[in-house]
Amino acid sequence: MTPWEHHADLTRERLITIAQLIKRGRNDALDRYDPSIGCTGWTLGCEAFSFQKHQIAEASLSIDWLEVLNPSMQFVFNIGSVPVRFYRGEPDDPNTRTLKQSYSELRQFSLFCTEELVNLTEQSLYRFAVETDIDGSLMAVTFVVLNGETPVLTWQVPLDEPVSKISPLWVEGSDGVDLPAPSVGIPAKKKRDGTSE
């Protein structure tokens, strides 16, 4: 089963978009990583989490199906009507912090209609598992549906596929301005005494 067969809001394009945002945030943190000024694996992890949150929050301003429910350290966002979080780790080995549901998630589940709740048990959790190499670089992003501690659906997001639109192609005021025609001519030569010919 694919995520979009599990829930219609979890389309392939949307999951790839979120994975690309996560990748961009982690790469921004890696670009700033400098052990010579005191950066450590801990600071890299903190910045990667913060930058990934920032990428998703900024994208939510221009993507209609993406909404931030909880901007705190328990960062929760909606893909359509599905509340989602991300964590660093393997998809089939979530830690206890990953398994906790935030108030935002629980409240969002109350908005599902009865037919959707049949497909989504009360304990289903939706997560992006971010797998990293020893140097902190991104190895894989997997979308995971958890039922309790058990992954019932895992789908590795293809990171090399292009994303349709993350930011708007047109923003207000980007039409340009009217300029007067330029003056065209041959420049005058100056004499040694500073006067023009």
Rank of each mutant, 00 (worst) to 15 (best):
N147W: 04
P162N: 13
L159T: 08
R127E: 03
E116R: 15
V141K: 06
D175I: 06
F49Y: 14
S124R: 14
I56C: 10
E131K: 11
D92V: 08
P158H: 05
I166H: 03
T114R: 13
R107E: 15
L69M: 14
L44V: 06
S137L: 02
D34H: 06
R85L: 07
T142W: 08
F75A: 04
V84T: 15
W65Y: 09
W42C: 00
P35W: 02
P158R: 08
L106K: 10
N78V: 10
L44F: 07
L179Q: 08
D135W: 00
L120K: 05
R26M: 11
D133A: 15
T43W: 01
Q74Y: 13
N70S: 14
K190I: 15
V84C: 15
T195S: 15
A19F: 10
S102K: 09
F51C: 13
Y87N: 05
K191C: 02
T11S: 13
E116F: 05
K189S: 07
D160W: 00
L21Q: 13
L146I: 08
E116V: 13
T96F: 12
V163P: 02
D64V: 12
N27L: 01
M1G: 12
L15K: 10
M1H: 07
I18M: 08
K100Q: 14
S196M: 10
G173C: 10
S174F: 06
S50D: 14
V157S: 03
Y87G: 04
R88S: 14
R12P: 01
P83R: 03
E131G: 04
T121Q: 14
D9V: 06
V76P: 00
G148P: 00
Q123E: 14
A140I: 00
S196A: 11
L30P: 00
E197N: 15
E5T: 05
P3S: 03
P158G: 08
E149L: 11
C46Y: 02
L117Y: 07
L106R: 04
P168S: 11
G194I: 00
D135S: 07
E197H: 13
A48I: 00
I56E: 01
A59S: 13
I79D: 00
D93L: 05
T154W: 02
Y33Q: 10
S174M: 09
K191I: 01
K190A: 11
E172M: 11
S164W: 01
G41R: 08
T17A: 11
G45I: 08
K189G: 04
L66T: 12
N119A: 12
D31C: 04
E197L: 15
D93M: 10
E161I: 10
L99I: 09
G148M: 00
K191Q: 01
P158C: 09
L21H: 11
D92F: 09
K165G: 01
N95L: 02
G38V: 04
K53T: 12
V171G: 09
Q55G: 03
L30F: 01
A48L: 00
S50I: 05
V82F: 08
P71A: 11
K100G: 13
V118M: 11
S102R: 05
P91G: 05
T96G: 05
N78T: 07
I186L: 11
